[in-house]
Design a protein around this nucleic acid. Structure first.
Lengths: 342, 342
DNA sequence: CTGTTAGCGCGTTCAG
DNA sequence: CTGAACGCGCTAACAG
C-alpha cells in the first residue's frame, strides 16, 4: 500500500477536485459533504458519489484551521505500562468517542518538566481540552498559570487547588477502613510500604493511615518503609525484610504491585500469608483477585474516573465551571488478611 | 486556569501580532522563530523576545497545512489494558520522540471495522505514517488496498503478505523449544490452552506446537482447549478442569495471563505446580517472574519491537522499501515446569 | 538580510 | 439553492 506516496486519485483529492469534476463550486461540495442545509438533494448525492469515486479523504487539519476546533482532547499519563492507567485510558477514550471527540495521549514518565512540555505541545496542536492523569500541576502551578490557555482537568489527585478542575477518589476513607479491618483482626503493629517516586499520593496515603492509627491511641504502632527500587514490584520485594524485622504483623502497601512484590518475598522467605503477615494492596488491578492468595485491597473505579474526567473537561470546554468530582472507592476483603498468629 | 477561553494575550497571538509589535513582516517572524537562515541575529533575538512576551504558541495545524507534514505517526493498538501493549507503546513513543515525531494512539478493541475506521481517521488527520499492533489487515486487505494511502507497518504478526511491511517475533521457534523442554522432562501428553478472539495468532501458535509435537511421533499427545471467557484470565480459569480431565500433565498457554488463570485454578483445586501440572506461558510480562511460582514462558521483546516498528515506518516515509523484520524471542525456564509425577 | 506574494484545504459569510 | 470571495495561521518561493 501507499505504493506511490501521492498516486493519481488516492486520498489526496481536495474539494476543488471534486468541484471541478462535478461542475460546481467548492463551497457547494463543502455543503454536500457535511450534510448542510440549503443544498439540492440530487446535487448533494451526485457530489457525494463523486467524492467516493475520487477516494476523497477530507483534511481534518484544514478543517481545524478554518473552524478553530480540533475535536480532540489531549491526555497526559505517567506511563503505558501501568495497568491502572490502562483502565483510566479505556474510560477516557470511550467517553470521548461517544461525544465525538478524539484523544491524543502522551506519557510524562512522572517528570514535571516533561508534563509541562506535553501540555504545551498539546496547546500548539490546539487540542480543545486536556486531562492530566496523576499530575504534578500542584507543584508546578505557577509555570502552568503563565503558559496555560486550555481547559484542564486533573485526574487522580484527592485534593488540589480549587482553581483546578479535578476528578479523584477519596483514598482516605478506604484506608481508614483498611486500618479498622486490621485492628479488628487483632493487629497492633502495622506498617506502610510506600514509594518514593510519587510523593504526592504517597504522602496522602501515609497521612491517612497515620491519622487512622492515631485514632486508636497507643495500642497500635505504625512502621513506615520506603524501599528503593526501579519498579513497584521491586520495591515490594525489597521492603519485605525491613517491615518483617520491624515486628509488624500486617502491611498496607502503596498499591497492588508492591503488594505482589511483598507476597513474593514472603513466599520466598517461607512465610505464610496471612498467618505470618497480613497484606493489603491498593487499586484492585485485575489479576490480584486471582493470585494464589487473592488480595485484600481497595477497588478504584478507574474506568469510571476516566469517563468522569471527559465529562468534566467537556463541561469546561462548553464554558462550565471547574468541578471537583470525588468518586467512591471500595475496600475489598479477600484472603491475604487474617488475625496475627501470636 | 483557562480563566477566559480567549484572554487578551494568552496563547492565541499569531505571527501577525508579533510582526506588528516588532515592526517586521510575518515571514520574518516565521524565520526567526524557526531559527532559519538568512536573518539578522539581533532581529531574530528581538522577535523571539517579543514572541515570549506575547505568550506566543505556534499553531501546529496551520504549520501542517502549509508544510503538508504532521510529524505524527498514528498507532492502532487492540487495548490499553494489555501489559504487552503497554511495553510496545513505550518503545514506539520513545523511538518516535527521539526522531522528532509524535504519536497518535487509538484502540481497535480487536474489531476489524474499527481498525479500518481508525486508520481512515488517521488519514484524515494526515498522519505521516501508521503502525498497527496485532492487526487484522491480512483479512481486510482488499478494503485497505482501496482506501489506504499512507505508509503502514504491522506489528506482531509473524507472517503476512509480502506487500505489507511488518515487524514481528517468530513465535514458532520458541514454541518448538517449549515443546522440546516439556518432552525432555518426560511429558507425553501436552495440552494447548488457546483463545478464540485472536484467531490469527492463536492458530499460528497452535500450528507451531502441533508441528513440534508431530516431530516426536506417536509418543506425544496433544489436547487442544479453547475455553470461553471474557478475559484471558477467565479463559485460563475455565480451561483448567478441561485440560486436567484430558489427562495431560503439561499445558502451554496462549499467553501469561491465561497461564495465571490456569495456575490459580490449579491452586484452587488443590493441585501442585509443577508436580501435578507443568505450566508454560507466553510473553513474559513483568509480574510472572515474581509470582509464587515463577513462570516458565517465552520472553517477547515488546519494547524493542515498538522501536523497530517506528524505524520501519520512518523508512517507509523516507521512501524506503517494505521491510519484514523478525526479532528473536527467548524461552525462559523458571519454576512452573518439571517432570510429571507418574 | 528582509519584504511581497501565494498558496495549503476547508468553512463561511454574503450575494445572486 | 448555488457561486464568489475571504480568512484561518503559517511556510515558501521570489524579489528587492
Amino acid at each position: 500500500m501507499a505504493e506511490k506516496a501521492h498516486g493519481p486519485e488516492p486520498g489526496r483529492a481536495s474539494i476543488y477536485d471534486i468541484a471541478r469534476a462535478a461542475g460546481v463550486n467548492p463551497s457547494t461540495v463543502s455543503r454536500a459533504l457535511n450534510n448542510r442545509d440549503r443544498i439540492g438533494n440530487e446535487t448533494r448525492l451526485r457530489i457525494q458519489r463523486i467524492a467516493e469515486e475520487l477516494g476523497y479523504q477530507p483534511s481534518d487539519i484544514a478543517r481545524s484551521l478554518a473552524t478553530n476546533r480540533t475535536v480532540t482532547i489531549g491526555v497526559v499519563v505517567p506511563s503505558f505500562s501501568d495497568p491502572t492507567v490502562g483502565a483510566v485510558l479505556a474510560g477516557i477514550e470511550r467517553q470521548a468517542n461517544d461525544a465525538g471527540y478524539r484523544v491524543l495521549i502522551s506519557t510524562s514518565k512522572r517528570d514535571r518538566d516533561r508534563e509541562l512540555e506535553i501540555v504545551q505541545d498539546f496547546q500548539r496542536r490546539r487540542v480543545d481540552g486536556v486531562i492530566i492523569v496523576t499530575s504534578h500541576v500542584r507543584s508546578t502551578y505557577e509555570v502552568f498559570q503563565k503558559t496555560l490557555d486550555v481547559p484542564l482537568v486533573v485526574n487522580g489527585h484527592e485534593e488540589s487547588r480549587p482553581d483546578i478542575a479535578v476528578v479523584a477518589t477519596d483514598d482516605r476513607l478506604s484506608l481508614r477502613t483498611a486500618v479498622q479491618h486490621l485492628v479488628d483482626l487483632g493487629h497492633s503493629h502495622l506498617s506502610y510500604l510506600g514509594v518514593e517516586d510519587r510523593p504526592n499520593s504517597n504522602t496522602t496515603r501515609l497521612t491517612a493511615i497515620q491519622k487512622a492509627v492515631l485514632a486508636y491511641g497507643t495500642p497500635v504502632a505504625l512502621t513506615v518503609v520506603n524501599p528503593e527500587g526501579s519498579s513497584d514490584l521491586e520495591r515490594g520485594l525489597a521492603g519485605y525484610k525491613i517491615l518483617r524485622s520491624s515486628g509488624s504483623t500486617a502491611v498496607i502497601c502503596y498499591n497492588d504491585m508492591t503488594a505482589i512484590g511483598v507476597m513474593s518475598a514472603a513466599q520466598r522467605a517461607g512465610d505464610e500469608i496471612p498467618r505470618d503477615i497480613s497484606v493489603v494492596g491498593f487499586d484492585d488491578i485485575d489479576i490480584v483477585a486471582h493470585l494464589s492468595h487473592p488480595l485484600t485491597t481497595t477497588r478504584q473505579p478507574f474506568y469510571r474516573m476516566g469517563r468522569e474526567s471527559v465529562d468534566c473537561v467537556l463541561d469546561l470546554i462548553a464554558g462550565g465551571p471547574k468541578r471537583h468530582i470525588v468518586v467512591p472507592s471500595r475496600f475489598v476483603i479477600r484472603e491475604t488478611t487474617g488475625p496475627p498468629s501470636h
